[in-house]
Protein backbone atom coordinates (compact mmCIF):
# COMPACT_ATOMS: atom_id res chain seq x y z
CA UNK A 1 0.00 0.00 0.00
CA UNK A 2 2.83 2.36 0.93
CA UNK A 3 4.67 1.28 -2.19
CA UNK A 4 1.63 2.02 -4.34
CA UNK A 5 1.32 5.47 -2.80
CA UNK A 6 4.96 6.15 -3.56
CA UNK A 7 4.53 4.97 -7.16
CA UNK A 8 1.38 7.08 -7.46
CA UNK A 9 3.21 10.17 -6.17
CA UNK A 10 6.14 9.59 -8.53
CA UNK A 11 3.73 9.25 -11.46
CA UNK A 12 1.87 12.40 -10.48
CA UNK A 13 4.84 14.67 -9.81
CA UNK A 14 6.96 13.47 -12.73
CA UNK A 15 3.91 13.77 -14.99
CA UNK A 16 3.07 17.28 -13.79
CA UNK A 17 6.65 18.43 -14.28
CA UNK A 18 6.72 16.85 -17.74
CA UNK A 19 3.36 18.31 -18.82
CA UNK A 20 4.65 21.54 -20.46
CA UNK A 21 7.66 19.82 -22.02
CA UNK A 22 5.62 16.99 -23.49
CA UNK A 23 3.14 19.55 -24.85
CA UNK A 24 6.04 21.48 -26.39
CA UNK A 25 7.39 18.35 -28.10
CA UNK A 26 3.92 17.30 -29.24
CA UNK A 27 3.14 20.71 -30.77
CA UNK A 28 6.49 20.75 -32.56
CA UNK A 29 5.66 17.38 -34.16
CA UNK A 30 2.71 18.96 -36.00
CA UNK A 31 4.91 21.87 -37.12
CA UNK A 32 7.70 19.59 -38.36
CA UNK A 33 5.33 17.22 -40.16
CA UNK A 34 2.99 19.73 -41.76
CA UNK A 35 4.33 23.28 -41.53
CA UNK A 36 8.08 23.03 -42.08
CA UNK A 37 9.84 26.30 -41.46
CA UNK A 38 11.24 27.77 -44.63
CA UNK A 39 14.22 30.15 -44.77
CA UNK A 40 12.96 33.67 -44.22
CA UNK A 41 14.29 37.12 -44.86
CA UNK A 42 16.18 38.95 -42.15
CA UNK A 43 14.22 41.57 -40.23
CA UNK A 44 17.10 43.79 -39.20
CA UNK A 45 20.59 44.60 -40.40
CA UNK A 46 23.34 46.54 -38.72
CA UNK A 47 27.01 47.18 -39.30
CA UNK A 48 29.65 47.44 -36.63
CA UNK A 49 32.99 48.89 -37.82
CA UNK A 50 36.37 49.13 -36.12
CA UNK A 51 36.35 45.67 -34.56
CA UNK A 52 39.15 44.29 -32.47
CA UNK A 53 39.43 40.82 -34.03
CA UNK A 54 41.26 37.92 -32.40
CA UNK A 55 44.41 37.11 -34.36
CA UNK A 56 44.56 33.94 -36.46
CA UNK A 57 40.93 33.01 -35.80
CA UNK A 58 40.42 31.88 -39.39
CA UNK A 59 43.03 29.13 -39.07
CA UNK A 60 41.52 27.53 -35.97
CA UNK A 61 39.46 24.34 -35.90
CA UNK A 62 35.67 24.56 -35.61
CA UNK A 63 35.21 24.47 -31.82
CA UNK A 64 38.32 26.51 -31.03
CA UNK A 65 37.24 29.08 -33.61
CA UNK A 66 33.87 29.51 -31.89
CA UNK A 67 35.48 29.80 -28.46
CA UNK A 68 37.85 32.45 -29.76
CA UNK A 69 34.99 34.36 -31.38
CA UNK A 70 32.60 34.11 -28.43
CA UNK A 71 33.85 37.29 -26.64
CA UNK A 72 33.49 39.20 -29.92
CA UNK A 73 29.92 37.90 -30.36
CA UNK A 74 29.15 39.02 -26.81
CA UNK A 75 30.50 42.50 -27.58
CA UNK A 76 28.33 42.58 -30.70
CA UNK A 77 25.38 41.62 -28.50
CA UNK A 78 24.78 38.46 -30.52
CA UNK A 79 23.87 35.65 -28.16
CA UNK A 80 23.10 32.02 -28.95
CA UNK A 81 24.41 28.75 -30.28
CA UNK A 82 26.94 29.26 -33.06
CA UNK A 83 26.54 26.93 -36.01
CA UNK A 84 29.09 25.87 -38.60
CA UNK A 85 31.30 28.88 -39.39
CA UNK A 86 32.18 29.27 -43.06
CA UNK A 87 35.52 30.81 -43.97
CA UNK A 88 35.84 32.44 -47.38
CA UNK A 89 39.63 32.85 -47.75
CA UNK A 90 39.60 34.93 -50.95
CA UNK A 91 37.22 37.47 -49.50
CA UNK A 92 38.69 37.20 -46.02
CA UNK A 93 35.26 36.67 -44.50
CA UNK A 94 33.85 34.52 -41.74
CA UNK A 95 30.13 33.79 -41.82
CA UNK A 96 28.81 32.87 -38.40
CA UNK A 97 25.22 31.64 -37.96
CA UNK A 98 23.97 32.11 -34.40
CA UNK A 99 20.62 30.89 -33.14
CA UNK A 100 18.47 30.76 -30.04
CA UNK A 101 15.04 29.07 -29.81
CA UNK A 102 13.33 32.32 -30.79
CA UNK A 103 15.88 34.14 -32.93
CA UNK A 104 18.35 33.67 -35.75
CA UNK A 105 21.30 35.88 -36.64
CA UNK A 106 24.10 35.76 -39.16
CA UNK A 107 27.31 37.63 -38.43
CA UNK A 108 29.25 38.34 -41.59
CA UNK A 109 32.72 39.19 -40.40
CA UNK A 110 34.96 41.04 -42.87
CA UNK A 111 38.41 40.34 -41.47
CA UNK A 112 40.33 42.76 -43.69
CA UNK A 113 38.00 45.71 -43.10
CA UNK A 114 37.35 44.72 -39.46
CA UNK A 115 33.62 45.15 -39.97
CA UNK A 116 30.74 42.94 -38.89
CA UNK A 117 27.45 42.94 -40.76
CA UNK A 118 24.76 41.43 -38.55
CA UNK A 119 21.40 40.34 -39.89
CA UNK A 120 18.83 38.93 -37.51
CA UNK A 121 15.19 38.03 -37.06
CA UNK A 122 12.79 36.73 -34.45
CA UNK A 123 11.33 33.32 -35.26
CA UNK A 124 8.33 32.90 -32.97
CA UNK A 125 6.97 30.31 -30.59
CA UNK A 126 6.29 27.50 -33.08
CA UNK A 127 9.79 27.77 -34.51
CA UNK A 128 11.11 27.76 -30.94
CA UNK A 129 9.33 24.47 -30.26
CA UNK A 130 10.92 22.91 -33.37
CA UNK A 131 14.35 24.31 -32.46
CA UNK A 132 14.16 22.77 -28.99
CA UNK A 133 12.83 19.49 -30.40
CA UNK A 134 15.89 19.18 -32.64
CA UNK A 135 18.47 20.36 -30.10
CA UNK A 136 21.13 19.28 -29.41
CA UNK A 137 20.64 16.59 -32.07
CA UNK A 138 23.08 14.35 -33.88
CA UNK A 139 24.72 16.79 -36.29
CA UNK A 140 27.86 18.91 -35.82
CA UNK A 141 28.58 17.12 -32.57
CA UNK A 142 32.05 18.65 -32.37
CA UNK A 143 30.67 22.18 -32.06
CA UNK A 144 27.24 21.62 -30.48
CA UNK A 145 26.78 22.98 -26.98
CA UNK A 146 28.98 26.02 -27.45
CA UNK A 147 26.29 28.14 -25.78
CA UNK A 148 25.51 27.51 -22.14
CA UNK A 149 21.74 27.33 -22.72
CA UNK A 150 22.16 24.58 -25.32
CA UNK A 151 24.04 22.55 -22.73
CA UNK A 152 21.33 23.29 -20.14
CA UNK A 153 18.63 22.25 -22.61
CA UNK A 154 20.61 19.09 -23.43
CA UNK A 155 20.46 18.13 -19.75
CA UNK A 156 16.74 18.92 -19.67
CA UNK A 157 16.13 16.88 -22.84
CA UNK A 158 17.85 13.85 -21.29
CA UNK A 159 16.00 14.31 -18.01
CA UNK A 160 12.70 14.50 -19.90
CA UNK A 161 13.37 11.13 -21.56
CA UNK A 162 14.30 9.48 -18.25
CA UNK A 163 11.21 10.97 -16.60
CA UNK A 164 9.06 9.70 -19.49
CA UNK A 165 10.40 6.19 -18.87
CA UNK A 166 9.66 6.62 -15.17
CA UNK A 167 6.17 7.97 -15.82
CA UNK A 168 5.24 5.21 -18.26
CA UNK A 169 6.61 2.48 -15.97
CA UNK A 170 4.75 3.84 -12.95
CA UNK A 171 1.67 4.33 -15.12
CA UNK A 172 1.72 0.65 -16.10
CA UNK A 173 2.06 -0.30 -12.42
CA UNK A 174 -0.85 1.91 -11.39
CA UNK A 175 -3.07 0.60 -14.20
CA UNK A 176 -2.29 -2.99 -13.26
CA UNK A 177 -3.45 -2.35 -9.71
CA UNK A 178 -6.92 -1.46 -10.98
CA UNK A 179 -8.33 -4.95 -11.55
CA UNK A 180 -11.43 -3.74 -13.36
CA UNK A 181 -9.30 -2.05 -16.04
CA UNK A 182 -6.87 -4.90 -16.66
CA UNK A 183 -8.78 -6.58 -19.44
CA UNK A 184 -9.59 -3.43 -21.42
CA UNK A 185 -6.09 -2.06 -20.82
CA UNK A 186 -4.49 -5.24 -22.11
CA UNK A 187 -6.63 -4.99 -25.21
CA UNK A 188 -5.51 -1.40 -25.88
CA UNK A 189 -1.90 -2.33 -25.18
CA UNK A 190 -2.12 -5.25 -27.60
CA UNK A 191 -3.80 -3.23 -30.33
CA UNK A 192 -1.20 -0.48 -29.95
CA UNK A 193 1.64 -3.00 -30.08
CA UNK A 194 0.19 -4.68 -33.17
CA UNK A 195 -0.23 -1.33 -34.97
CA UNK A 196 3.27 -0.26 -33.93
CA UNK A 197 4.96 -3.48 -35.01
CA UNK A 198 2.87 -3.67 -38.18
CA UNK A 199 3.84 -0.18 -39.35
CA UNK A 200 7.49 -0.47 -38.31
CA UNK A 201 7.81 -3.85 -40.08
CA UNK A 202 6.05 -2.55 -43.21
CA UNK A 203 8.44 0.41 -43.30
CA UNK A 204 11.64 -1.44 -42.65
CA UNK A 205 11.37 -5.03 -43.92
Amino acid sequence: MRGSRLVSSLHLYAGMFLAPFVTLFAVSVFVVNHFPVRPQLAESRREVPGLDLPAGVESLEARARIQKLRPLLDRLNVRGEAGFIRYLPEEQRLIIPVSTPSSEAVVDLHLRERVAVITSRQTGLLRASVYLHKMPGPHLANIKGNWVWTRVWGIFADAIVYLIFLTTATGIWLWWLVRSERRAGLLWLTVGAVVFLGVVCALSI
Binding site: V161, I172, L189
Partner: peptide
Protein backbone atom coordinates in the same frame (compact mmCIF):
# COMPACT_ATOMS: atom_id res chain seq x y z
CA UNK B 1 -5.87 8.25 -19.78
CA UNK B 2 -5.14 4.56 -19.19
CA UNK B 3 -6.14 3.38 -22.64
CA UNK B 4 -4.31 6.01 -24.69
CA UNK B 5 -1.22 5.68 -22.52
CA UNK B 6 -1.21 1.92 -23.09
CA UNK B 7 -2.02 2.17 -26.79
CA UNK B 8 0.86 4.58 -27.42
CA UNK B 9 3.31 2.91 -25.02
CA UNK B 10 5.64 1.42 -27.64
CA UNK B 11 5.51 4.60 -29.74
CA UNK B 12 6.46 6.69 -26.69
CA UNK B 13 9.33 4.37 -25.83
CA UNK B 14 10.56 4.34 -29.43
CA UNK B 15 10.61 8.13 -29.76
CA UNK B 16 12.05 8.63 -26.26
CA UNK B 17 14.88 6.17 -26.75
Amino acid sequence: HYYLGLYFLLFVWLFSL
